[in-house]
Structure formats: C-alpha cells, structure tokens
Amino acid sequence: MRVLLVEDDLMIGESLSEALQDETYIVDWVKNGRQAILTLKVQPYEIILLDLGLPEIDGMGVLTAIRDAKIDTPVLIITARDDIKDRIAGLDSGADDYVVKPFELGEVFARMRVLIRRAQGKADNHLTVGNLSLDTTNKRVMMNAAPIDLTAKEYMLLTKFMLSPEKVMSKTELEDSLYGWGGEVESNAVEFLIHSLRKKLGQARIKNVRGLGWYISNNTANSNATSNSDANHPRA
C-alpha cells in the first residue's frame, strides 16, 4: 500500500519513512505543502500522513485544497499542535484522524490501518479471497488455515491483489504498489513475483488477461501449493 508522507522535519521524516517501509508500505515523502498538492493530483494513495506546520502552504491549506479537489484519500494529521481548537479545525476541514507529536509508532500504524480499512469498507484487518486469508496487522498469510512463507515483495503484491479480488490490474499499477520514487524497477519484476506467488499459492490462483494484466481469482481449484509452517512472516 502506498503512503504520501508530508513532513518538513528531516529527522522525523526519515525516521517515519524508514518505519513505514519496515511495515511494507511504499512511501513517497514530500517536504512542503505545494509539492503535496501537486503530487496528489497525479498519484493515488491509500493514505496521507500530513503535518500542519509546512512551508509554502501549511497543512490546513493542503487539506482544504485536496478536499476541494474531491480527493477523498484518508488523511491522518501528525502534528505538534495539541490545542483542542486545532484538533477540531483539522477534523472539520476534512481530516480523518489526528495524532499529536511525539507519538508512538505503533499507535500511528494502528490508526492508519483503521482509516485504510474504513476507506475500503472493511470491518477488520483481515482480507479473504477463497481459501486465502491475509492479516495486515501481523503480516501473516494463510491458505487452508496453513501459513504461507512470503518475501516482503510477494506479500506487498498479494495484498494489492487481495484488496480488489477479480479486478484486472496492469503491470504499471502493480509496479506502483511495489516501488516508491527513485526505486529501481526491473523490467520483469512483476512477472517474476507473480511466477513465485503461483508456485506457492497454486497456478490457478493468479490469472492473466493477455494485453491487460493480472487478477486474483476466488477459484481455489488447483491451488495445491505447499507451505512452510515455521516461517509465516514476510522477509526482505
């Protein structure tokens, strides 16, 4: 899942960006409000982490601009402004949640999961497609109640598929879920990961529509992959 981090403090931005990547998010980091608005006009995100004290255009200005533009991406404000009036103003201007610095990363991640699943119309942090289940809190994948060992990139790609089962996704769309700005994308990276997932989940699980892309099927037929019960968390 892709996150836009809008934060001008270099130390906080670097720390939060690294922590988000460790949680298997793709992070694009901008350091001023004007760049945030321009970015959101061309790139979709699952969630926005927005500081208020930004140069050029402050966070409230960014929030107003994107809501006026009908961009409904969930926004989690992360700021040092702890006055109740600021909280009310942020929420009334279109933010979905508000966290005051200094914050615990675990709480930020939990609030992000709530906002993302709410935007997707889901009641909890579990995705289910046929006999596959994915726990986005613990980064655990199960098939027929048995754990499946995935790499970090495999987990990220599978999450993208399971968020929209039966939806055909292009190679470019899938690459966007795997690499942030400046990330070196190998020409066959998506194909390689799909081949690997098919070996683990069954050849019939991920289907190709020639010339358009791939999708994950609810059909469990021929899903005869083996699993490793001792290693069920994604690795780099």
Rank of each mutant, 00 (worst) to 15 (best):
M1A: 15
R2N: 15
V3E: 02
M11D: 07
Y25E: 10
V27I: 11
G33Q: 09
A36C: 06
K41P: 01
Q43C: 10
I47V: 07
P55M: 14
P55R: 11
E56Q: 12
D58M: 12
A65D: 08
R67W: 01
T73E: 13
E104V: 10
V108M: 12
M112D: 00
R118T: 07
Q120G: 10
K122E: 00
N125E: 00
G130I: 01
G130R: 08
N131L: 05
S133P: 02
D135S: 14
K139S: 12
K139G: 06
K139P: 01
M142K: 12
M142F: 15
A146H: 02
I148W: 03
D149C: 11
T151W: 04
K153V: 04
T159D: 04
L163P: 00
S164E: 04
V168C: 07
E173W: 05
S177W: 05
S177L: 06
L178A: 13
W181Q: 15
S187W: 02
S187V: 08
L193V: 12
I194H: 05
S196N: 09
R198Y: 11
R198H: 09
Q203Y: 14
A204R: 11
I206E: 04
W214N: 12
N222T: 02
N228L: 15
S229H: 13
R235H: 14
